[in-house]
Design a protein around this nucleic acid. Structure first.
Lengths: 86, 86
DNA sequence: CATAATTTACCGCCTTGGCGGCAAAAGATT
DNA sequence: AATCTTTTGCCGCCAAGGCGGTAAATTATG
């Protein structure tokens, strides 16, 4: 199970969520229940509402088994030293 | 310049942002201006406010040259067929 | 070590995201 | 094709996010 990362174009988040939801055979109401949020949020996300709250989107992605990753050259530096100063 | 992905633990987003901001030598006000948002948002994010709006967080990450990526096995399927049905 | 300059913390106001409810649309069943 | 079932679209209300302003705290400078 090699990880397959795809750089996120912010305006593609709607189609991505919808595609995964359909693949999972879930209605918006069902996905909303699994994610523990309201159905309106699913509707909004799929319709490209970028002002959705981050944790709301994160719950949806988690429910769809989509993981988020950050791509930054200096992340290693942070992880190696949890109490990194500057 | 190989991409270095790090799976995102949602509650680590605050420290990640702060670490990158400090590394860039920016104050919160400066980062806010670069990102085109208010300084309060930076403050909130660094203090672990997960209810921040997604596009607000995205602007901050972009200003810090942090890219977001999605990890999903079926993403290839979506990208290959832009008008994928089910 | 005093004080000036910068950065951070927090407050109240205003805007808006997220909610349930319900109607419209789409799909299934006979 | 008529009707029952499921899904989607959208409305108004309420709670909360994001804003600038300002005080507190931190850091730099002479």
């Amino acid at each position: 199970m090699t990880a397959t990362f795809h750089l996120l174009n912010i305006e593609q988040i709607g189609p991505i969520v919808q595609f995964h939801r359909k693949k999972a055979g879930l209605s918006r109401v069902e996905l909303a229940m699994v994610a523990g949020i309201g159905k309106t949020a699913i509707y909004d996300i799929e319709h490209g509402k970028l002002t959705v709250q981050f944790n709301t989107l994160f719950k949806v992605l988690a429910a769809l088994n989509i993981k988020l990753a950050v791509d930054s050259p200096i992340m290693d530096l942070l992880e190696e030293t949890p109490n990194a100063q500057r």
